[in-house]
Design a binder for these strands. Sequence first.
DNA 1: ATGGTTGGAAGCCAA
Length: 259
Amino acid sequence: MKIASWNVNSIKARKDHVIKYLQDTDLDVLMVQELKGLDFPAEDFEAIGYKTAAVTQKAYNGVAIFSKTPITVILDKLPGDESDEQARYIEFETTGPYETPLRLINIYLPNGNPIGTEKFTYKLAWMERLRLRLKELKDNNIPFSIGGDFNIIPQDKDCYDPNAWKDDALKQPESIAAYRSLINLGLTEAFRIYNKSSGQYSFWDYQAGAWQKDNGIRIDHFLLSPEIADRIQNCVIDKTPRGWDRPSDHTPIIIEIAA
DNA sequence: ATGGTTGGAAGCCAA
């Protein structure tokens, strides 16, 4: 079962890319972030054989899921703050090719820049709410995989120049500590099972020729509960779509899970 | 090189 995560930076601007990628890659599930608008063209994806669900807001954020098999939405917002209106979380189940429904979570974790503002405070508070939700799943013995744009650079080797990111919310010690606290629930970062080296990225800025110079960062991740970690078969970052014409600034990360 | 580019919105903000 192939499951991918991809920050598409506007579903309106990237609809054709998403359709092409679903077909080229034969994905069972795709989770996307940054829809950037209220409109979601569900019928265009249904026409190529995918069920969809989307959580949208005007202009910003937004997450959506695509699956070959029916989707049951469990939660369309992160618990813990009723006043939070930002569309950044969808938790769902789908069976894929197997018999048992699989619990999946798709997140667009707050960017948090600039540091020293309420945006950074919101990021850390959102991460603590996320930790409590994942702990709840763990305490209820519900296996899960969570993927998305985490907006976290976990280690120095996950960026081309650590010094260039030292004042950025994506690499602050508090941000990385909050990410570690998620992993310390007993989760496994899928990509690092198979890839130990530096220089593998999932995002390249549009500016200053970052893609051409391979000045990237690795901020899109999958974390697996122990039951799913036992079933993982592979995890890769697929750089191909970043090289397409008018691309997203992110590229997909894919996991494969056995029956 | 404290810039640069993209997208959605509206005549700037977020990334």
